[in-house]
């Protein structure tokens, strides 16, 4: 597929990122202050504010799920991508690429629902499911990113007498970094969404108030959870967008 290049006004995006981050932090810390607002909007509700757990704790749990699984996904995924693009592992490249492509057609929610019961409910099984799924875009983009490095560039690097490790660290990885980060971005954003569903398999996250609200017919809980997790995803996405731009050379 042809890459679509979008030039966004950088200045505006930065302010958006800062503004939304501040909003997110303020909402996480001071959601209680909005209780009268929810009370006013939903006068029929007995409890207009989710109070079984603090929003700070829910957010931290959510971040921990995403962070742990993403760190594993990225290290294993980049490692696998590097392995199949080196001489020793090149034979595995077609299979690993199609595995990553086929695997991404599996719905994340279905993967979560199959993996978690196999490993028992709760935090660790959810991490396993998130990690497995998060691997795929990272592997795919690592292979794609390293594939974009022109053969002439590698030839030139070899010609200047660089060792293989030097070529990898000083030429290939820097040139592939933008595409690899794009893969990490997809992986992390999917994981933020899937961690939300993790609350149905016993992992506490920002999805917990959403599910509690949907089950108990409490729209206020639903809104509180959904706004926070939506903001979290958007802030993360904007952050990665900046990071990607930092690594684009001459573009």
């Amino acid at each position: 597929m042809r890459a679509v290049t979008l030039r966004a006004p950088t200045q505006g995006r930065t302010w958006l990122l800062v503004g939304l981050s501040v909003l997110l932090v303020v909402l996480v810390l001071f959601m209680e202050a909005l209780k009268p607002l929810f009370q006013f909007a939903f006068p029929d509700l007995q409890s207009p504010l989710y109070d079984r757990e603090s929003f700070l704790q829910l957010t931290l749990d959510h971040l921990l799920l995403v962070l742990v699984s993403s760190v594993i996904s990225v290290s294993v995924g980049v490692g696998a991508g590097l392995f199949v693009t080196r001489r020793g592992g090149r034979e595995f490249e077609p299979l690993v690429s199609s595995l990553a492509a086929i695997g991404q057609t599996f719905p994340p929610a279905a993967v979560l629902a199959i993996v978690v019961p196999l490993a028992g409910f709760g935090f660790v099984p959810t991490i396993v499911a998130l990690t497995l799924y998060g691997l795929l875009p990272v592997v795919q983009n690592t292979i794609a990113g390293l594939g974009t490095v022109p053969a002439t560039t590698l030839e030139a690097a070899r010609g200047t007498g660089m060792s293989r490790a030097q070529i990898l660290l000083r030429v290939e990885l820097p040139l592939a970094m933008r595409v690899i980060i794009a893969g990490v971005r997809v992986s992390v954003i999917i994981n933020i969404g899937t961690a939300t569903i993790g609350s149905t398999v016993g992992a506490q996250s920002l999805g917990t108030p959403i599910i509690a609200g949907l089950v108990g017919n409490n729209i206020a809980y639903v809104i509180q959870g959904a706004v926070l997790v939506g903001l979290l995803a958007i802030v993360t996405d904007l952050f990665f967008e900046r990071l990607e731009r930092r690594f684009s050379f001459g573009g």
């Binding site: 939300t196 809104i223 939506g230 995803a233």
Partner: peptide, 26 residues
């Protein structure tokens, strides 16, 4: 039209599914 359009659509795509479903309920 490209920048704002793709920005908006990417914004939709970023929101976790369960949050978007739930936010439309109210």
């Amino acid at each position: 039209a490209r920048g704002p359009l793709f920005g908006l659509l990417n914004f939709f795509q970023t929101i976790p599914s369960i949050a978007l479903f739930a936010l439309l309920v109210a």
